[in-house]
Design a protein around this nucleic acid. Structure first.
Lengths: 223, 223
DNA sequence: GGGCCTAGGATTGTGTGCAATCTAGGGGCG
DNA sequence: CGCCCCTAGATTGCACACAATCCTAGGCCC
């Protein structure tokens, strides 16, 4: 029991992570033989993995011509924010109505931890922020209990840049972002779904400008 | 060159359609050998196809235990409407700002055709309504030009019940639905994105009750 | 010198065989 | 009588081999 049952899944997970955290850049060729050799499996599970990743939108396969890492235009990345601002405020609003006492405690704890490692000072650790942030948003999604919205959001977040770190945030943006988490917890505690929605809307728009700028820069440096 | 380049794609498309239009019902087993034999290919492309469909959410694979057609709870189907009402009004609002003269003509033509075959009378043909309706909504999505939203919506609509016919609509609901299409065209013509959004919101909620009822019935008869 | 055509190598698509795993059913044991 | 284990058949997972397709480079013709 190394990791997962089938090697195809293992390969898919590996390549997915490499794409999401930037080790494989947009447009890179994914040769089956090479991947197979470097991962110590045959071409069959590699092919299966690439097909799945194509279905997920992370990879683009052309018949008889192989697979490449998908590439996203700046317009597409902006569009992801458009989608997030359609979904996440709604989810957060639903969460405000459905949250249990203990959910609020968990979220509150996460928001506090993010303040601790996120604010400038000796304890600042922007990399530690990533999993905390992820946990916070995941928990919100779970509370809302909207399977279709959650699934749509999950595929939207399967895009590079989304999982990156917070080093591209300037200080005011970062401070606001951390404050939003705390405010969302308070909105949930007040069972105020309108408030919760509004804060989440701000939260996403606050992130948007930073991210779009980062995407634009990255696009340009790849020329 | 019968249909598509690779047989894996062909198999995937075939099975997808069979699931979406109900020839394969939720929970049915999908044995690789059997599918391969009945489609005249080997197990390899069949496996590839099933893997992709699993990634799309239409099929559920369990390692070493094969694949079944995915099943959706009533809650999940309701949640699809939740998602649609988050996405489609937004898309329609964007379309109202981006629509060209010719787009409006195309949509107008489709809306008229739907009136012709949809209203009770000698020419009524509820099956003919399905492709027209699909074309109408697809065209709206294309006008809006929001790749991420479009992708999210597309995966959401990959759910049984969505592609079905209009025979479950009662008459007032059907009349309203047809009228909405015409009204959306008018809102686009007026470049009024608020109006367009509102009509689309109504349109989806109008469909929701009928669909959820149908889903509940279907769920019960399968016991 | 430029463009078209044609091998040659490389890469992907598919079929097949074998190993690993699961499922069903019967016999033994408590 | 019920529970557990174990074997036999069926099914999936993976490796490998061959066929089909694509890309590249070199030569030929204009």
């Amino acid at each position: 029991m190394t990791t997962s049952a089938t090697s195809a899944e293992r390969v898919a997970a590996l390549v997915r992570d490499m794409i999401l955290d930037g080790r494989l850049t947009s447009g890179s060729r994914l040769a089956e033989t090479e991947l197979a050799r470097s991962l110590g499996v045959s071409r069959t599970p590699v092919r299966e993995a690439l097909g799945r990743l194509d279905a997920e939108g992370l990879v683009e396969q052309v018949p008889n011509r192989g697979a490449r890492v998908a590439s996203w235009s700046v317009a597409e990345i902006e569009s992801v924010f458009e989608l997030r601002s359609a979904l996440e405020p709604r989810l957060t609003g639903a969460a405000a109505l459905a949250a249990q006492e203990e959910d609020i405690l968990v979220l509150s704890e996460l928001a506090e931890q993010m303040l601790a490692v996120g604010l400038p000072g000796p304890d600042q650790d922007l990399d530690a922020l990533v999993p905390l942030n992820r946990a916070f948003h995941d928990h919100l999604v779970r509370i809302a209990d909207q399977p279709a919205l959650a699934a749509a959001l999950a595929t939207a977040l399967r895009t590079p840049l989304q999982r990156r770190n917070f080093s591209t945030y300037d200080e005011p943006t970062l401070r606001r972002s951390l404050a939003h988490h705390v405010e969302i917890v308070d909105a949930l505690r007040a069972r105020d779904s309108t408030w919760a929605r509004a804060v989440m809307t701000s939260h996403i728009h606050n992130a948007r400008s930073v991210m779009v700028r980062a995407a634009t820069d990255q696009q340009e440096e790849s020329r």
